[in-house]
């Protein structure tokens, strides 16, 4: 549900993997094949003098390389820190307009907390559900509610879903409009700690 760019994640892992595979493969194969080995050792014996002569003729190269390293670090840091974003505290915002079903002279903002409390209250008496997490996400210019139900051991997932659907219908009636809802029915730590369901 988060705005994590999954393609970028896979691309980074793929590029790093291909680079390691190519370098490692080249090292292993290059040493094993005599022709490749001779070619590589020819280049290798020239390399140190070539590097030192280049460095003495162009002393800015280490500085440029260091700046490039810094830029890449900033880029990777941004990449790592932008994972898992996309949560929002606001579920719905209705701006003033003269049409029906809209406020006049002001706007209405409904927090995701309201949905959380209404749904949690409606489902608190369902024995199959141990705990409920409700979070709002901003996905494709829409605010989506994610309802995570931690079930009691042995609870029927079909029954849990129909209970949540009923609570969502109740919430729709309270709110007056429908926002997308994604339900997760999971068995986590809280399931293991809770007692098992005793009645079907």
């Amino acid at each position: 549900m988060t705005s994590t760019n999954r393609f970028l994640n896979r691309l980074l892992v793929l590029v790093a993997g291909l680079a390691l595979l190519a370098v490692g493969g080249a090292i292993a194969v290059g040493v094993l094949l005599p022709d490749a080995r001779d070619a590589v050792s020819g280049v290798a014996s020239d390399a140190p003098s070539a590097v030192s002569s280049t460095l003495s003729s162009a002393p800015w190269i280490p500085w440029a390389a260091a700046v490039a390293c810094l830029l890449l670090i900033v880029l990777l840091l941004w990449f790592a820190l932008r994972q898992g974003h996309g949560r929002t505290g606001t579920l719905l915002r209705v701006d003033a307009s003269p049409g029906r079903g809209t406020p006049t002279g002001g706007s209405v903002t409904v927090d995701a907390k309201v949905a959380e409390q209404v749904l949690t209250d409606a489902l608190s008496r369902v024995p199959a559900i141990v705990a409920l997490d409700v979070t709002a996400f901003r996905v494709r210019r829409q605010n989506v509610l994610r309802v995570t139900a931690h079930t009691r051991r042995g609870a029927s997932p079909v029954a849990v879903r129909s209970e949540i659907d009923r609570a969502v219908a109740h919430w729709d009636a309270v709110l007056g409009r429908e926002t997308p809802v994604v339900i997760q029915i999971v068995a986590g730590l809280r399931t293991r700690v809770a007692k098992a369901a005793r009645v079907a």
Binding site: G24, G25, A28
Partner: peptide
């Protein structure tokens, strides 16, 4: 540059380990 002259066994082993890590990453991706 001097590593080319190092004993072949060690160099091949290092290369193989690096390649296997790369392969794992490719599979993960």
């Amino acid at each position: 540059a001097g590593a080319v002259a190092a004993p072949a066994g060690i160099v091949v082993a290092i290369g193989a380990v690096v390649a296997v890590i790369g392969l794992v990453l490719v599979v993960v991706a």
